[in-house]
Amino acid sequence: MKIVVPLNQVPDLVEDLEVDASGKALDTDDIKFKLNEFDDHALEEAILLKESGAGDEVVAMAIDRDGADKMLFTAIAKGADKVVKLTGGNPADSHQLGKAFANALESEGFDMVFTGVQSVDDRDGQLGPIVASYLGAPCVSVVSGISISGATAVVHKEYSGGMMGEFEVDMPAVLGIQAAKQAPRYAPVSKIRQVQETASIMEASMGDVGSANGSAVASMAPPAKGSGAEMLDDIDDLIDVLKDKGAI
């Protein structure tokens, strides 16, 4: 079973985020990017399935941008067999991103596609179902439990309140991963540096990504502070509040 995992970078939320002069986009001055944590889970789940024998090959893909190389080498260090960088364009939104990956997936071939269930910047839709739609493949997202049996996967889709729906999915299929069976493994920098010497990144064209999804940002701003929390000065104030509200 061949699992392909599209990887995307998102702004690192540890940093403070600011709006740029246009008022419509993030100020990229002090922004750092990192791998979308759900994509990390998707990659981890794929590698776990390979390690357990359910999967044979794990392929990671990323759009050619700053930081893509490091992200792909890191995927190899974690256990991916092959990595592909998609060139020839700059997808502007989730739909173009989905089309780019769908094009590449068609040429690459796959049994399963694991994407992160969502990302912090996917305002115009979640990648998994979008890619599935372009590929004409079935999709289940918000998945946190996968077992493979031949050409079928049994997956657990999370609902609220701790409930889950169990589904059978015929491959080839796309799954939007909420959580892998264990937290994404650490990729030792020692290993990544070693991998950088020995491994190579394949390149493929992302093809025609079509037009943007048609929803331009009108404005962007931090949430209005207005009626925020009443900030307390010290422990005594806190204790007063607790007493007042019946906690003590």
Binding site: S190, K191, I192, R193
Partner: peptide
């Protein structure tokens, strides 16, 4: 033991 990270 993370020699690579130390180097970076």
């Amino acid at each position: 033991g993370e020699e690579g990270l130390f180097e970076v």
